[in-house]
Design a protein around this nucleic acid. Structure first.
Lengths: 327, 327
DNA sequence: TTGAAAGCGCTAACAA
DNA sequence: TTGTTAGCGCTTTCAA
């Protein structure tokens, strides 16, 4: 391993000068700078993160908090975060809260211990109190998730408006009986999307039938299927389903297919998230797309600004209705 | 931030003793140990990674190399790695080679720079020469991927046998015309799986028809669909398809569905990997399951042993044929 | 503009 | 068994 000492010796300068060339080149004469830079290049030298961090107590590591890496929703966000962070000299690592469940030492120690310079939290199930108190001391941003009562800046879409757009689109297609497969109301996005659903119905003077509103514990394929089955067993069936996740929608779609009903004629379905698989179903799924990669880029940028001491403001990004063959 | 100094002062011992309690408790008297441990607990103290690493030049960070995080195949493997690593005091971070393509400074600098103690590579496209030379100096293991000519220990399944099992199963069902949708032959797993395919055909005296062997550049849904379309346009159509990935198989399935043909009666389909979506298609997909989580656990264990200087042997794990409704 | 030197938190060699 | 201390690689203050 090459150290700053080696560079200094070969270049015939002191370690302080090498450090200056790296961190504050303007105070070094051009001649010295070029000489040192040549040695750095020749040796393929990079400063030791640990040496630097011990001195400055910054780690240039960013922590990403997600429930589970197997949820495809997070993949593009993470790519966006990773790319942005790397470009700015930060490395990211992922902490899956699901698999660390019940541990005494949690992700917050990684911050307190200066292993990470900041956190991007995307976990809706995370202990809010812990997160808020952490955010008082350390840089924290929320991505996709957010809390109105908290003071943590976030990157997200307007969930209410997105749901409104989806349901309004169904209404415009002539649907009057629209079911909602929602997640648990403890999640803000779930409450917001329900508001959007109700707003659209109200606007067109359609009654809100709570029998057609189904809440699931978990955004799973099986739960989507179960919800769909329940709706199809009703005397008065809906003619369209708005599901708050593609996985739920795909479960619903499977159940409709299995019963030999036609999509979208017998039942129209809209999902949420535009996961890649939503384009592989038969028929392909109409869905709301969140700008996931951009959300990742934005939240990483925001976190790094926060780390550098700047003020940051929450950002709402645009969603998009992607019309395909299930409606 | 609490340091070892604080702990030492409060416990009324030297920093060396605190360090011993943490790293080598057996040399400390029980009385001292208990006293120090109490302070450590009270303060919620954890040693600084940077201080420790600067001293020992180990980082307790593990690097995971994958092409892209959006490929669902890697999710469970990563979970297995992460969990195992965390339990042993290591933190993992992910480096996506796709998104860092064309960069001068690559993942190898992270090792040379002691930011990571070792690498688990799962990238089939990685520069082998670079990986081999890196493995001479640093702990490296391969997971899922491997190279016969290299000396890097790996965790994988027996691809030839897995393909053989899949094709033999189709033959037992009565199929005589079996197509293979394969990836590019530059990948070892692709060559191995083809060998397994041919072995099964040979064993039952079925001819190998190269028209029915389709190679794709990329394991994408679209390529699966394209391959399937080509096979269905033939004068002499196969009656079954073995695809080397579920995504390809799902593409093939979509094309068959779109043409109004019945699965498995008109066309049987087997995929590979048992990704979660393979259970959500209509009909559900028969597939070969790789023990992904276990592969992750095993490779992390192997890497940590290697880091600790132990010899490690490559491990072949068992695959499983998961019979569902597409055959 | 450059260099010398202190010190970040930790471990381990040596001394007691 | 415990304490003292050097030094890992780096940045930054102070001095020249």
């Amino acid at each position: 391993m090459q150290t700053i000492q080696t560079v200094a010796r070969i270049a015939g300068v002191s370690v302080a000068t090498v450090s200056r060339v790296i961190n504050n080149p303007s105070v070094v004469t051009e001649k010295t700078r070029i000489k040192v830079e040549k040695v750095i290049n020749d040796l393929n030298y990079e400063p030791s993160v640990h040496g630097r961090n011990l001195r400055t107590s910054e780690s240039r590591l960013l922590l990403i908090l997600i429930p589970s890496i197997s949820n495809p929703f997070y993949a593009d966000i993470i790519s966006g975060i990773e790319k942005t962070a790397f470009e700015q000299g930060y490395i990211t690592f992922i902490y899956e809260t699901d698999s660390h469940h019940g541990r005494k030492k949690t992700y917050s120690n990684l911050l307190r211990n200066r292993l990470a310079d900041g956190i991007i939290s995307m976990d809706p199930t995370v202990n809010k109190q812990e997160l808020f108190s952490l955010a008082n001391q350390y840089p924290v941003v929320q991505c996709s998730e957010y809390d109105v009562e908290g003071s943590i800046s976030y990157v997200a879409i307007n969930h209410k408006l997105a749901a409104y757009d989806a349901v309004k689109y169904l209404i415009k297609l002539g649907h009057k009986k629209i079911a909602l497969i929602n997640s648990h109301s403890k999640y803000l996005y779930s409450r917001e999307r329900r508001k959007g659903y109700e707003k659209a119905l109200n606007e067109f003077n359609l009654p809100i039938n709570t029998d057609w509103i189904y809440n699931t514990q978990k955004l799973s394929f099986e739960n989507g299927q179960r919800a769909s089955s329940m709706l199809l067993n009703m005397d008065e069936k809906p003619t369209a389903i708005f599901a708050v996740s593609d996985i739920l929608a795909i479960g619903a779609l499977k159940e409709v297919n299995m019963r030999g009903l036609k999509i979208p004629n017998d039942m129209a379905i809209i999902g949420f998230d535009k996961i890649s698989f939503s384009n592989m179903t038969h028929p392909t799924l109409t869905t709301i797309s969140q700008p996931r990669y951009e959300m990742g880029v934005t939240s990483a940028t925001m976190l790094i600004e926060k780390i550098k001491g700047k003020q940051t403001k929450s950002i709402i990004l645009d969603h998009e209705l992607v019309i395909r063959n299930s409606t």
